[in-house]
Amino acid sequence: MTTISLTSLRDNLPSLVRRAQQGERIAITVRGKTVAELGPNRTQNARDAALQRLAAQRGRVIAGDVLAPMTDAWNADADHL
């Protein structure tokens, strides 16, 4: 992680924001103490997050069991006596 002073941040903000957009994390210091970080936005929209979770499950889950219609009628009373 790159470390810069607050003064340097003020002087170079546009270039530092571009670096953060590319994935770099930048620590901002005041009198040598880190007070904040500048970095990429890690939030995803709900659709992208769901697609990423589904892709992670590929090859480990059989979706046909859940999506296939049931051929037998289900009767809660008869099945749980």
Rank of each mutant, 00 (worst) to 15 (best):
S15H: 03
Q21R: 13
A27K: 04
D79S: 07
N75V: 09
I28G: 02
R25P: 00
A50F: 14
T34C: 07
L9R: 04
D79T: 06
A46V: 14
H80P: 03
Q52E: 13
A27E: 05
L51R: 10
T43D: 15
A78Q: 08
N45S: 09
I4H: 00
M1K: 08
D77A: 07
A20R: 02
S8G: 08
T7I: 14
I28L: 11
A76F: 14
L38Y: 01
K33G: 04
V35C: 05
T2L: 07
R42A: 00
I28P: 00
L67F: 15
T71R: 15
L81P: 01
A46G: 05
E24T: 02
N41C: 12
A50N: 09
T3S: 11
Q52P: 02
A56K: 15
V17C: 06
P40Q: 00
I62R: 11
Q57F: 14
A56F: 05
P14N: 10
D65S: 10
M1D: 07
N75D: 10
I26R: 01
V61D: 04
Q44A: 09
G32Q: 03
A36Q: 07
A50K: 12
D65M: 11
T29Y: 02
E37M: 04
M70I: 15
L38G: 01
P40D: 02
N12P: 01
P40W: 00
R42Y: 09
T2H: 04
I26M: 03
D79C: 05
G23F: 05
Q22E: 10
A20Y: 01
A50H: 07
T3V: 14
L54V: 10
Q52H: 14
N45R: 13
V61P: 04
E24H: 02
L6R: 04
L54C: 02
T29V: 05
R25Y: 04
M70E: 14
A49K: 08
I4G: 02
R60C: 06
G64A: 13
V66C: 07
S15F: 05
A73N: 09
R25E: 01
I26C: 05
A68F: 07
R47L: 15
W74T: 09
S8Q: 15
V61C: 10
G32T: 06
V17Q: 07
A50R: 11
Q44V: 09
R18G: 01
M70D: 12
G39L: 02
K33S: 06
N75E: 04
G23R: 03
N12K: 08
S15V: 11
N75T: 09
L9H: 00
T71Y: 11
G23W: 03
I62T: 12
I28M: 05
